[in-house]
């Protein structure tokens, strides 16, 4: 057999493209990531751990965890329900629903926050009613949770809709002819078929819920120890020139991002094999 070798000129373009991509990734992703850890540790390990002794730091971490713990499960339920009805049934207004699910992706998080301020603020009838009954939503934890749910709503549904549409309804139909009710169909047939996609959606949803800044910033009011989530607290620290503390807290979010990436790769690998 003749040895076929590609001329060196035709290897230039692929090498150039791959090289550029790596440079881009190094410059825009890896370098900032390293600098976070470098900044956090540049006054020594003791200074790094000192940043977590602050009570406001702990309350910010706690609030972020609480927010994610409420927002993520709710969006799992909403997301699975929305994906289920969009992928498996035909109904009037389906395309409108799909557009609405995408809405949080389409609008700026700041606008999303403002929408809640406008809806529940003191100037509206709803807002004054809430005030009269001493229910606080804006500049309080419920507002933060609401804004987070809104911003992270599409992740689970968006992940599941194409997957469920591709799988079709044949297995569900088969299950129904075998006598299964809706509950059995979901738990025994649909859920096992979507479990990896669902986990993937949950991980992305969680990462965004913990990292959300814009929408939460508008509704929070930045009350230290009360309505500061981790991203907000980092911003407050940074603005007050507490660089080491700001970057130390930031390493937690960066670590979350890294864990998310690893988990995502594992799931993608599992889906394939």
């Amino acid at each position: 057999m003749k040895n076929i070798s590609t001329p060196w000129t035709s290897r230039i373009v692929p090498t150039l493209l791959v090289g550029t991509t790596f440079l881009f990734v190094a410059f825009f992703l890896v370098l900032p990531l390293i600098s976070i850890f470098a900044e956090a540790l540049h006054k020594g390990v003791a200074a790094y751990f000192n940043s977590f002794k602050d009570q406001y730091a702990w309350s910010a971490i706690r609030l972020t965890l609480v927010t994610a713990a409420i927002a993520v499960p709710l969006n799992i339920v909403f997301g699975v329900m929305a994906a289920w009805c969009i992928a498996k049934f035909e109904f009037w207004g389906k395309s409108v629903l799909i557009t609405l699910i995408d809405l949080p992706f389409a609008i700026s998080p700041v606008i999303a926050g403002l929408v809640f301020v406008l809806a529940f603020g003191q100037r509206t009838a709803l807002g004054s009613w809430l005030l009269a009954h001493d229910i606080k939503i804006i500049y309080a934890v419920p507002g933060i949770v609401l804004a987070t749910i809104f911003v992270t709503f599409p992740f689970v549904a968006r992940e599941l809709i194409p997957l469920m549409q591709e799988q079709g309804t044949l297995e569900e139909e088969a299950a129904v002819t075998l006598g299964a009710g809706g509950w059995d169909v979901f738990w025994r047939v649909t859920l096992p078929n979507i479990k990896w996609g669902l986990l993937y959606g949950i991980i992305l949803c969680n990462a965004r819920a913990m990292g959300e800044f814009g929408a939460v910033s508008v509704v929070s009011g930045h009350i230290r120890g009360e309505t500061n989530t981790m991203p907000l607290y980092i911003e407050t620290l940074y603005a007050s020139y507490s660089t080491v503390a700001a970057f130390s807290i930031a390493t937690l979010l960066a670590a979350l991002a890294l864990v998310t990436l690893v988990a995502k790769s594992v799931i993608e690998w599992r889906e394939k094999y």
Binding site: E171, E173, A174, T177, G179, R188, P192
Partner: peptide, 16 residues
């Protein structure tokens, strides 16, 4: 459907 109790074999099997 469940009450009708018919065995249905699908064209592409539709196995779980």
């Amino acid at each position: 459907i469940a009450e009708r109790r018919v065995g249905f074999v699908f064209q592409h099997y539709a196995l779980f």
